[in-house]
Design a protein around this nucleic acid. Structure first.
Length: 422
DNA sequence: TCTGGGGTCCTAGGACCC
DNA sequence: TCTGGGGTCCTAGGACCC
């Protein structure tokens, strides 16, 4: 039987979350900024209409925003995650198989659903809007890549009512012709440049391009599969189980430049703490870490970028161990006199916690460490993040801390910040 | 003054082994 | 003068995604 896949995508997700608690912002342009209030990561259509691009640095368009009464917010990720969970839970009622693809997107397997699929998806859409308050668009087709194409059409043509089904050859051809090849899922700027040079500009031309060897050469296996998917062949399967992370990255741009090693150490200790919490949350251990520091590439100062790894003799998820060796690596990387702007830690060689290898050389009492970490995690879950932490993280004086001047209240995750009704 | 953060997959090429 | 062939494993880096 032919597969039927629907892609549900929340419209301007972060902005929609902010609007949820601020109904006064309906029809007013809204934008959400990245960490550090750096650049736009979500925009409503009103803001797009003003010409503000994805990834646009805020400082460049601040004046324009003020002039047009744009409501600008710092990112409030705990809010977005919470709303995302509600959307996903609602979707689970409409299909046996749901893949939560990202915070604002999910693939549904509608194979075998009887009746008018567009009608069915309109009900899905209305339910999410009514129960959670988030507007979504839905694309339906026989492969994930085609569902993505359909979704984009649904989003761009208001009269479709938010749902579009590539139900026959004619519609599919039309939709693919409308889609720039670089907008196809899996085809980025590099590959699309190469395809353009072959005279391929839209998705239909790419689908019908016969030279498979050329396709293989330009973008390997994944590119060939993408082409097959555009032909309607189901290649990328739904993955409905949540996979454990194979690497965990924790990094931030500093709120203001950092010069001294002490402050750098403090920031790295905090990122290590975050990463280890995530590691323990998925019940894993790691055997390898990497520390990276860098100056600001956009600023006209002497640049420095350095990265170095460390391999443990045995697997661990003990925050203290990770901080200890991250600092050791950091000390080797550090050069005096640079204006540091970003620090990062990457944890890899991750595996399940119960199959970590014991080391002959590192004398660690694993059961003691496990118990301590468990207690710390429990306290922090109950009493709030960072209630108990390593002194290495520092207590205040956090010059490296992010700027978040425009953050909305934690409406759903902080008791003190619940929305008040007057 | 001011430009995000967190992931995955694939390949080429080096190291190493027999 | 002249220096094999094949396989595996690992890593760095490219490309892409949201």
């Amino acid at each position: 039987m032919e597969k039927i896949i629907a892609l549900v995508d929340c419209n301007s997700f972060y902005c929609s979350c902010e609007r949820l608690f601020r109904p006064d912002l309906k029809n007013i342009p809204v934008g959400v900024l990245s960490n550090n209030d750096g650049c736009f990561v979500s925009r409503t259509k009103e803001l797009k209409a003003l010409g503000v691009k994805m990834g646009e640095p805020y400082f460049k368009v601040k004046e324009l925003c003020e002039k047009n009464n744009v409501a600008v917010f710092s990112a409030n990720f705990s809010l977005y995650t919470n709303i995302s969970d509600r959307v996903m839970r609602t979707l689970m009622n409409f299909a046996p198989e749901v893949e939560v693809y990202s915070v604002d997107e999910a693939f549904l397997d509608l194979t075998g659903v009887q009746g008018d699929l567009e009608k069915y998806c309109k009900i899905v859409r209305e339910t999410i809007l009514r129960d959670v308050g988030i507007p979504v668009s839905i694309g339906i087709a026989s492969s994930k890549t085609l569902a993505k194409v359909a979704n984009k059409i649904a989003k761009n043509y208001d009269k479709l009512g938010g749902v579009f089904y590539l139900s026959d050859q004619k519609r599919t051809d039309w939709a693919l012709e409308k889609t720039k090849v670089g907008d196809v899922w899996g085809i980025g700027s590099r590959s699309s440049e190469k395809l353009n040079s072959l005279g391929i500009y839209n998705a239909k031309q790419f689908r019908d391009y016969k030279n498979e060897r050329q396709v293989q050469k330009i973008f390997t296996k994944l590119g060939r599969m993408t082409q097959d998917e555009l032909k309607g062949k189901y290649c990328f399967e739904l993955s409905t189980v949540v996979e454990k992370k194979k690497e965990i990255i924790s990094s931030r741009t500093f709120g203001s430049p950092v010069f001294d090693i002490g402050t750098l150490r403090q920031s790295i200790a905090n990122y290590a703490t975050l990463a280890c919490e995530k590691l323990r949350h998925q019940k894993s251990v790691c055997a390898s870490i990497e520390v990276i520091v860098r100056t600001n590439p956009f600023k006209n100062v002497t640049q420095y970028y350095a990265a170095r790894g460390y391999k443990f003799n045995s697997h661990t998820n003990d925050t203290r161990m990770v901080i200890k060796y991250a600092w050791q690596v950091l000390d080797e990387l550090y050069r005096h006199g640079y204006e540091y702007k970003k620090g990062m830690i990457r944890i890899s060689e991750i595996r399940d916690g119960d199959q970590g290898q014991m080391s002959l050389f590192e004398q660690t009492d694993n059961s003691k460490s496990e118990k301590l970490m468990e207690v710390i995690d429990r306290i922090n879950r109950r009493e709030g993040p960072q209630t108990v932490k390593s002194m290495a993280c520092g207590v205040d004086n956090k010059a490296w801390k992010m700027k978040q001047e425009l953050k909305s209240p934690r409406y759903v995750t902080g008791w003190n910040e619940l929305r008040k009704c007057y």
